[in-house]
Simulated assay, not measured.
Amino acid sequence: MNYNLNNLPERTSKPRQYGFTMAMDKGLSIRQAEDFVSICADHVDIVKLGWATSFVTPNLKDKLKVYKDAGIPVYFGGTLFEAFIIRDQFDDYRRLLDKFDMSFAEVSDGSIDLDHDKKCDYITKLSEQVTVLSEVGSKDADKIIPPYLWIDLMQKELDAGAWKVIGEAREGGNVGLFRSTGEVRSGLVQEILTKIPFEKIIWEAPQKAQQVWFIKLLGANVNLGNIAPEEVIPLETIRLGLRGDTFLHFLGIEKKNTNTAPPFEVD
């Protein structure tokens, strides 16, 4: 840090087991990736190349090297995994991971119907090759998964070999964990946390209000994902209580809320 401030929440340090920030690269150029890591490398734990953008990204190996040289792991978005699975190309996907020297992979079923036992089998097989992140939740806003099933799916995927599970929200933060308006399904989150340790979950939370909500609930070291590159530094200030949204929170002071409507509805 550039200077000293007392009474800041303690942040975990890299390599972190929790307190993760997962940034989403939706098609940065090599120059943009270089600029990004020059300012944010200390605050980014892993980068996801969103959905299947890696398929059309030019100079992919060169961009991956930018992140690798900065000490930031990268993985392909789960939709790319699904694109291979629906075409019966799982072995090709495994070879792809080796070709690009990937150490992480995401297993998801947000866009396809995939038997859960089969999904867990993919997790187990891939966990012998790379570190697996598995995503739970649908990209279909009309598909509502009850809390007990979220818990069951998450636990089974952790048992199958996933290092962490990701709560689906898409890059817009308007499905899965959230309503179409971006409001947190707070009852769902609270129920998940009764069974799944918070450090094992990465909550996709691309919107600032969502990030604030999770930080106030779980503290500065909650795992958050789908963070836009330009929002990484702002997020770190929210984690540290150095932005208005959490400025008083970590000092044990809260403003009186004169607005009778809560920022997020309760299930």
Rank of each mutant, 00 (worst) to 15 (best):
K143H: 08
T57Y: 10
E183N: 10
I30K: 11
T124R: 07
K119P: 00
I166E: 01
L97I: 04
T79N: 08
L60P: 08
R243N: 13
P147E: 14
L218S: 06
G19T: 08
I145N: 04
L28R: 03
Q190G: 10
A169H: 06
N59K: 11
E168C: 03
W51P: 01
S54N: 14
Y148T: 11
I166Y: 02
G252K: 05
A169E: 08
L64T: 13
L188R: 04
L217T: 14
L60V: 03
Q207Y: 05
P206I: 14
R87I: 04
F247M: 14
R16E: 09
I72N: 09
S180F: 02
P229K: 06
E135Q: 05
F90L: 03
K255G: 05
S186W: 14
L8T: 10
S138Y: 03
L97M: 03
L133E: 00
Q32H: 08
V130T: 09
A160L: 05
A209K: 06
L193A: 15
T194A: 14
A205S: 13
G71E: 05
Q32T: 02
F178S: 02
V66S: 14
E106F: 02
F36P: 05
I227V: 15
F36I: 01
V37I: 09
S103Q: 15
E183T: 05
N223Y: 10
V165H: 02
T21G: 08
Q32N: 11
K208T: 15
P229Y: 13
T258E: 10
Y122M: 01
R239L: 09
I145E: 04
A70M: 11
Q190D: 15
D69T: 08
G187K: 12
L158M: 12
V212L: 04
M24R: 09
G161M: 06
Q155Y: 09
D267W: 12
L49P: 05
S138A: 10
Q207M: 10
L153S: 06
A162D: 02
E236M: 13
A205G: 05
K143G: 00
K63D: 05
I238S: 00
D45M: 06
P58M: 07
G27R: 09
E168T: 06
Q129E: 12
I112K: 02
E231P: 02
E265H: 11
I123V: 07
D245M: 03
G71W: 07
S38F: 06
I145R: 05
T194I: 12
S103C: 07
K99I: 13
K119G: 00
K63M: 04
G71V: 01
G241W: 01
S13V: 10
D245I: 04
K195C: 13
K65C: 12
R31M: 10
V56G: 12
F247S: 13
K139F: 07
K216S: 12
V66H: 15
G19A: 10
N221M: 13
R239N: 12
E183P: 00
G27Y: 11
E231W: 04
T258L: 14
Q32R: 11
V136K: 01
D140P: 01
V66R: 14
D35F: 12
V132K: 00
T246I: 07
E106A: 01
K63R: 12
F250W: 13
D121P: 00
P9N: 08
L133T: 01
C120H: 03
M22Q: 15
K119D: 02
K48I: 09
D88E: 15
F36W: 09
G167S: 10
